[in-house]
C-alpha cells in the first residue's frame, strides 16, 4: 500500500480519536447524564409544552 495513504489513514484515525475523547470528556462534564435516573426527557417535554403555549 502507498506509504502516504497509510500515513493519512493513521493521522485521520488519531485525530478522530483525540477529538472524540475531548468531545466526550467535555460533554460528560457539561451534562453528566443521570445513570438510571434520567430526567432529560422531562426537560424536552417541558420545552415542547411551553412551545405549544402550555
Amino acid at each position: 500500500m502507498n506509504e502516504w495513504l497509510d500515513k493519512i489513514i493513521v493521522s485521520v484515525l488519531i485525530l478522530w480519536a483525540l477529538g472524540y475523547v475531548v468531545w466526550i470528556t467535555v460533554k460528560k462534564f457539561k451534562r453528566p447524564g443521570c445513570g438510571d435516573s434520567c430526567s432529560c426527557d422531562a426537560k424536552k417535554l417541558a420545552k415542547n409544552l411551553s412551545r405549544k403555549g402550555r
Binding site: 493513521v10 484515525l13 488519531i14 478522530w16 480519536a17 483525540l18 472524540y20 475523547v21 466526550i24
Partner: peptide
C-alpha cells in the same frame, strides 16, 4: 466500541 476504541487508537499512537 466508542471510548475504548478511541482510547485504544490514542494509546497505540
Amino acid at each position: 466500541g466508542t471510548i475504548i476504541f478511541a482510547m485504544s487508537v490514542l494509546i497505540w499512537a
